[in-house]
């Protein structure tokens, strides 16, 4: 249920996102999920990839500032109301989430959450019947 996420600083400049994703593609790393948020002058690109440690090394060689953090991945059914069930549950167990995005894979949707207390969240969500994806 816990996976590694890579966050990359992206300057809001023409072609910058393409440059970064090009580096990832050329190294044969597959992007499983992605979120880009931006302000007027910069953005943070958050990625779930198949080999985060290797990507971190590649980014460092290319002098791109990046950090690895742990995030929660939770499967929910691809149907109305599935997301709200999860968010309500987090509220119940008093886990704060900072941001979330979605990766849809086959029949299920997978929610990626950055929460304040990973282990406790896993423990309590599992107890409530939630599960993580087999593979991301």
């Amino acid at each position: 249920m816990i996976t590694k996420q890579i966050s990359i600083f992206i300057e809001n400049r023409h072609g910058r996102l393409a440059e970064v994703t090009d580096i990832i593609a050329k190294n044969g790393i597959n992007i499983r999920a992605l979120s880009v948020a931006d302000t007027t002058s910069f953005g943070i690109l958050r990625l779930i990839v198949d080999d985060p440690e290797r990507l971190e090394g590649i980014l460092r060689e290319n002098r791109i500032t990046a950090s690895i953090t742990s995030v929660l991945t939770v499967c929910i059914g691809d149907k109305p109301g599935a997301l709200v069930d999860l968010l309500r549950k987090l509220e119940d167990i008093q886990i704060e989430y900072m941001y979330t995005y979605i990766s849809a894979d086959g029949g299920d949707a997978c929610i990626i959450l950055r929460v304040d207390r990973d282990e406790e969240a896993v423990h309590r969500l599992t107890a409530a019947g939630f599960r993580g994806p087999d593979k991301i």
Binding site: F42, T65, A66, M98
Partner: peptide, 15 residues
């Protein structure tokens, strides 16, 4: 130049 990766966890940090 943003060189400190710790700033990337949260937008608030950059702002």
């Amino acid at each position: 130049e943003v060189t400190d990766a710790a700033l990337l966890d949260h937008y608030g940090e950059l702002e």
